[in-house]
Computed example of a mutant assay.
Amino acid sequence: MIRLAAFAAVLLASSAAFAAPTLRAEALVSAEIVTLGDLADDAGADAGVALFRAPDYGLTGAVPADVVIAAARRAGVEDVSAGLVSEIAVTRLGRSVTGDQVMEAIAARAAADLGAEPSAMRVTLDDDRPVHLSPQNRGAVEVSQFALDSRTGRFEALLGADRGARGTRVTGAVVETVEVAVTARPLARGEVLRDADLIVERRPKAGNGGAVDLEGARGLATRRALREGQTFRANDLMRPQHVERGGFVTLVYGGSGMSLSLKAKALASGAQGDLIDVQNVQSKRIVSGVVTGPSEVTVTAAPTAIARR
């Protein structure tokens, strides 16, 4: 009886040693190349035989059993059995990173190349779904290679291609932006800008290099009508006009210990501090004075001394 049991054990061990590799329905792989041992039980000494390239990180590919068997035969392994398996789902392990993480990494790389701040870079991806990297990449997303077309803003980048890992390719567009002031509502000519009339936005630097920022626009007046959402340029703004050409002003004479106010007609428009000509309504004399307030022009010499004609 003991001899019979021993014989059976030897027979089972012998059968196991010569068992044909049998395919599994599913396989998880981490390497670049899929081996027979990844796909089949009882591969034995042939477990390391390379069969084909693995899917990209994080993806699953279905491989027909007969394709695996044919690849094994080409590699010199003849006895692979499909068993009950018709195809194998091969999944490549990978680290998933979000589109936001990818855009942050691209912005940092583009900013370094352009000598700008990462916050100034606006990145869009052609595909903003999560991407998968090598599971070896545990830290921040690394841009291994980066090519940027400065004319179109189009880029192509390779992520995580370090430590011998195959990188993941992403494409999209990146634009350097600047902060500019834009109108919060339609504005008529001559309106003095208040904080409520202005919004700060980031716009592409190209085409907005001459745009005025918030500090440069605050307190000025519009030189022409502007639509909502429009940026400001220097020639769109002017100092607030306190005096309009052809309008009536109060002409104030000051100096020599005396002060006198008369009614006059402005011969030119003017902002605070501008020197303009006005005509005394009564005497018709023309004098020059400084705009000192809304509808107010001041001269500092006596009336008889400053009359020009």
Rank of each mutant, 00 (worst) to 15 (best):
G209K: 07
L260Y: 08
E191D: 14
L193H: 03
F248A: 12
T250N: 11
A221L: 11
I199C: 02
V287I: 15
D277A: 10
S261N: 14
D274E: 11
S288E: 15
A266N: 02
K263L: 12
P204N: 07
D195T: 03
T222E: 06
F248E: 13
N235R: 05
T231R: 11
G207C: 12
D274I: 10
N280R: 01
A271Y: 02
I276L: 08
R223Q: 15
F248M: 11
G246Y: 07
L220E: 08
S256N: 13
R218E: 00
A211R: 02
V200D: 00
S261R: 07
E215D: 12
V278I: 11
L214N: 01
R224A: 14
N235T: 13
Q241T: 10
A211P: 00
T250A: 08
H242W: 13
F232I: 01
I286F: 04
L267D: 02
E228F: 04
G247K: 01
I286Q: 04
V249Y: 01
D197R: 06
R233G: 10
G273P: 00
G207N: 14
V281P: 00
P204H: 08
E201M: 07
G219V: 00
Y253E: 10
Q279C: 02
A225W: 11
S269Y: 02
G209Q: 12
D213V: 05
N280H: 07
R203K: 15
Y253D: 06
D277L: 07
Y253N: 02
G254L: 06
E191F: 03
N208Q: 12
Q279A: 13
L267K: 06
I286Y: 05
Q282A: 13
L198E: 02
R203W: 14
L198W: 06
N208A: 14
Q230T: 14
G247Y: 05
S261A: 15
Q282F: 08
Q230L: 07
G229K: 06
G219W: 09
V287W: 01
K205D: 05
G270V: 03
P204M: 08
S288D: 09
S261Q: 14
Q241V: 11
L275Q: 09
R194E: 03
V281I: 15
F248P: 00
M258R: 08
R203F: 13
R194V: 01
L262W: 05
P240M: 12
L198D: 04
N280I: 11
L275K: 12
A266D: 04
N208R: 09
V287K: 00
E244N: 02
L262T: 04
L275C: 00
A271H: 10
N208L: 12
Q279S: 10
G247L: 08
K265T: 13
G210V: 09
M238Q: 15
V212F: 07
V281G: 00
A206S: 10
